[in-house]
């Protein structure tokens, strides 16, 4: 699979990736807005992680590749982030 094919495949889901990147930017902006408010920042983290899990599931549904293992993978990664960030914020 050369770069052109990868890009062609990625183009199919380009808007979904754009939404993920856009939400990531919003997430960083919100963290800056809630600067020094640790609880609010932690809520923003939870919201972003929840969005990411939902995004992952939706993305694989549209790709007809959704299975339980994939859902668990997204949930595990999300929980790792929440637990580690919790150490720093609250």
């Amino acid at each position: 699979m050369d770069i052109k094919n990868i890009l062609k495949k990625k183009k199919k889901h380009l808007w979904q990736y754009l939404i993920l990147i856009f939400s990531g930017i919003i997430f960083l902006i919100l963290l800056s807005v809630f600067k020094s408010q640790r609880l609010n920042q932690f809520i923003v983290f939870i919201a972003f992680v929840s969005f990411y899990i939902c995004w992952g599931i939706y993305h694989h549904i549209t790709d007809n590749r959704l299975n339980l293992k994939i859902v668990i993978e997204y949930i595990i990664i999300g929980f790792i982030v929440i637990l580690l960030v919790k150490l720093l914020l609250i």
Partner: peptide
């Protein structure tokens, strides 16, 4: 047939950037 690591990569990049922001 596993999750797409490209999406995980984007997610982890944002988490690393967020770690820099929360120190302020």
């Amino acid at each position: 047939l596993s999750a797409k690591n490209f999406s995980h990569l984007i997610f982890v990049v944002f988490i690393i950037l967020s770690l820099i922001i929360i120190t302020k």
